[in-house]
Computed example of a mutant assay.
Amino acid sequence: MSRGTKLSLDIGASWNEGWSLEEDRKASAAEILTPPEHRLVFQREKRKGKIVTLVGPFSLVGDEAQKTLSILKKSLACGGAYKEGWMEFQGDIAPQLRAQLEKLSYRFKK
């Protein structure tokens, strides 16, 4: 192979309904929710001695999740990331984060 070309290996084909890839089936199974339909929870973890606040699970498209994350990071003046449906924020900022998410019309579990 020459440099710059990628080798495409599609592993995980399904035999049930003809030829289809498993990742296509997963993408269609993911349900996209509007902000009021979300039921979010908070988790607090320590990573390398620092506190991290997790909020999720979010059911958003990648671009929408990144826009929401960007808005929250700017309003809270902290760093963060979006991984596997959960937003991670640096620091113990659950009360401030909850207030900002309620402004964006997200809901929480009791």
Rank of each mutant, 00 (worst) to 15 (best):
M1I: 02
M1G: 15
G4L: 02
K6V: 04
K6M: 09
L7W: 10
L9D: 01
L9K: 07
L9G: 01
D10P: 11
I11K: 06
I11V: 12
G12D: 01
A13Y: 12
S14D: 02
S14K: 02
W15Y: 10
W15C: 09
W15T: 08
N16L: 03
N16V: 02
E17Y: 12
G18R: 08
W19K: 07
S20D: 05
S20M: 07
S20F: 05
E22S: 09
E22I: 02
E22T: 08
R25P: 03
R25K: 14
K26E: 11
K26T: 01
A27Y: 06
S28A: 13
E31R: 15
E31G: 05
E31Q: 15
E31M: 11
I32D: 04
T34V: 13
P35V: 02
P35Y: 12
P35R: 11
H38F: 06
H38N: 05
H38C: 03
R39W: 06
R39G: 07
L40G: 10
L40E: 04
F42D: 08
Q43K: 13
R44H: 12
R44G: 14
E45Y: 10
E45N: 08
K46H: 09
K46Q: 10
R47P: 09
R47A: 15
K48H: 10
K50G: 13
K50A: 15
I51E: 15
V52H: 12
T53F: 01
L54N: 11
L54S: 02
G56A: 04
G56Q: 08
P57N: 00
P57R: 07
P57L: 01
F58A: 06
S59H: 15
L60Q: 10
V61C: 03
A65G: 08
Q66L: 06
Q66E: 10
K67M: 06
T68S: 06
T68M: 11
L69R: 07
I71W: 07
L72W: 05
L72V: 00
L72P: 01
K73H: 04
K73A: 07
K73E: 10
K74E: 14
S75E: 13
L76E: 03
L76I: 00
L76S: 04
A77W: 02
A77T: 00
C78M: 06
G79S: 15
A81E: 14
A81D: 14
Y82K: 00
Y82R: 06
Y82I: 03
K83T: 14
K83L: 12
E84V: 11
E84M: 10
E84W: 09
E84I: 05
E84L: 08
E84N: 12
G85V: 00
W86E: 10
W86T: 13
W86Q: 07
M87C: 00
F89C: 09
F89E: 06
Q90A: 11
Q90H: 11
I93F: 05
A94E: 14
A94P: 00
Q96K: 15
Q96N: 14
L97Q: 02
R98N: 06
Q100E: 14
Q100W: 04
L101T: 03
L101F: 03
K103Y: 00
L104Y: 08
L104H: 12
S105D: 09
Y106W: 03
R107Q: 14
K109Y: 06
K109F: 05
